[in-house]
Amino acid sequence: MIPLPASLGGTGTLAGWTLQDARYAATWNSGIGSATHGGRWNSIGKHVIYAALDPATAILEVAVHKGFKVLNTVAHNLISFTVTDPALVRVVQPGHVPNPHWLHPIPPNKDQQEFGDQLIDAHPFVLLPSAVSGHSWNLLVNVATALPLVTDIQFERFALDPRLRAKP
């Protein structure tokens, strides 16, 4: 279960979640995929782990690119980790993004990626609204600076609920 926030009697820790193809489990923390292809918030060459603050958003972020069929037929790992110092997370509120269209499910552009690169260069962790679910958060992890600040890494085999694949 996801720990309850401190205000509800929980632990108050900050967890990140990412869903990764099991074939690449050994390199889950390398950011090689985002460095090779670029991403919504990073340009090619920038090593970033794309995570979320909850597993459901992490799953949706992958499903939107790969589809539920792949998540149903190719082994994946759901990986969680704890950020040791939440004060090091740069929170970018929707109103602080220069172009509000960047928060919608459109292909990223060079200006958007450069904006993200600047944030990633300046902070080990960056929290931005998700384009898949505007009420959720993406956690960008700067591979160059954040990995020593990540603990309690847990891997679990991911299993897609088959009902998500049952209908065409």
Rank of each mutant, 00 (worst) to 15 (best):
V74H: 03
L139A: 10
L4Y: 03
D111A: 13
I49G: 10
S130V: 00
N29P: 03
W28L: 04
T82N: 08
R157M: 14
R40H: 01
L53P: 02
R23D: 07
D21H: 11
T82V: 10
K110M: 12
N109T: 06
N99G: 06
I153F: 00
A26S: 13
L139Q: 05
L160K: 06
T36K: 04
T27C: 10
H65W: 11
Q20F: 01
V70E: 09
Q112L: 02
A87M: 05
V64W: 03
A52L: 07
A51Q: 01
A25P: 06
R23L: 06
V70M: 06
L160W: 02
G31W: 04
E156A: 15
I32K: 14
L160Q: 09
L147K: 15
W17D: 14
G95V: 02
A22I: 01
P124T: 03
P86W: 05
L127Q: 15
R90H: 14
T84M: 10
R157D: 15
E114T: 15
T13M: 06
V62L: 12
D161E: 15
V74S: 07
S133K: 12
Y24M: 13
S130N: 00
P124W: 02
L140C: 04
T13I: 13
D85L: 00
D152Y: 09
E61M: 04
L19N: 13
I2A: 05
L127C: 15
R23M: 03
F158P: 05
P55G: 10
D111Y: 02
E61V: 07
Q93D: 12
N109D: 15
P55T: 11
L147P: 13
K46Q: 14
S136P: 00
L19Q: 13
S7F: 09
V92R: 05
P86C: 07
A75W: 03
R23K: 09
T36N: 09
F68E: 04
G45V: 07
G116H: 08
V143E: 06
G116D: 04
T73K: 07
P98D: 07
L4M: 10
H104Q: 09
D161H: 11
A166D: 14
G116V: 00
A52C: 09
S136E: 14
S34L: 13
L53W: 06
V89Y: 15
M1I: 08
Y50W: 05
G45Y: 06
T151Y: 12
I59N: 03
